[in-house]
Each structure stands twice: as structure tokens, then as C-alpha cells.
């Protein structure tokens, strides 16, 4: 069920992906949504999850992902948990209560945006 929701969500995002500015603007929403569904995740897991859901169409690079994660943490939307896994330390991210509220807001904003864009794209502007 969760996978299906994420798939629909990321496929909708993908429509916007051809423009890199729109992609950058949607990255935080993708991260927040994934963490809302999966409770806690680490960086590499997020990149792989998005890749798997979109069948390799969408590839989030570490250069984009980690700064976004750190910014969300600095804003108090994410909290960090460090655990020792397979001979190394792993940093897990999870939503704070503020992050949960922000996820709902961001998803609502995005849904509205997609709806408006669909109306614009499908309407006969002339």
C-alpha cells in the first residue's frame, strides 16, 4: 500500500522533473513523504528507494540529497539517530512532530500545484 502511494507520488513528481528548478523544489517534499511512510531511513536507502519506485527513472545524487537532509535537520523538521550497523556508524533520519505537520502542508501545496498545472496544460488557452 505504502509503495503504491509513493509510486503515484513520485510519478507525479516526475512530470515536473524535466525542469531542474522544479526538481530542486520538490526534493524536500520527496524526502519528507518517504520518511512519513517509512518512519526512519538513511541517505543511501533514500536514493535507492526513489530509484526503485521510479524504475530507475529518477536518480537523486548524494550532492543533492545530503545538503537537503542537513537543511531539513537544521530547520527542525528531521531528527537524527546514529546506530552502529555492519562495522560502521549509520545516520538515520526521521520526522519530528514539526516535520510531520510540514509534510502534510507540503503535500497539500504540491497537490494544489499539480492540479493547477493540469488545468492549465489541459485547457485550450487560445
Amino acid at each position: 500500500m505504502h509503495k503504491k502511494i509513493m509510486y503515484i507520488f513520485v510519478v507525479q513528481i516526475e512530470v515536473l522533473m524535466s525542469n531542474s528548478k522544479l526538481y530542486k523544489g520538490s526534493l524536500n517534499t520527496i524526502i519528507l513523504k518517504l520518511l512519513q511512510v517509512h518512519h526512519k531511513m538513511y541517505g543511501y536507502e533514500i536514493t535507492q528507494k526513489v530509484k526503485a519506485i521510479t524504475n530507475g527513472e529518477l536518480n537523486i545524487t548524494e550532492g543533492a540529497l545530503y545538503p537537503a537532509l542537513h537543511k531539513l535537520e537544521a530547520e527542525g523538521l528531521l531528527e537524527v539517530e546514529v546506530t552502529k550497523v555492519d562495522n560502521r556508524l549509520r545516520k538515520y533520519y526521521k520526522l519530528t512532530s514539526m516535520g510531520n505537520r510540514e509534510t502534510v502542508n507540503k503535500l497539500t501545496e504540491l497537490a494544489e500545484y499539480i492540479k493547477t498545472m493540469q488545468v492549465l496544460v489541459n485547457s485550450k488557452l487560445a
Binding site: 541517505g43 546514529v82 550497523v85 555492519d86 560502521r88 556508524l89 545516520k91
Partner: peptide, 9 residues
């Protein structure tokens, strides 16, 4: 530590 985990993964 986060980069080490990413590269290792």
C-alpha cells in the same frame, strides 16, 4: 561517517 556509510553501501 555519513559519507563512509554511503560509499560502503
Amino acid at each position: 561517517l555519513e559519507m563512509v556509510d554511503h560509499v560502503a553501501s
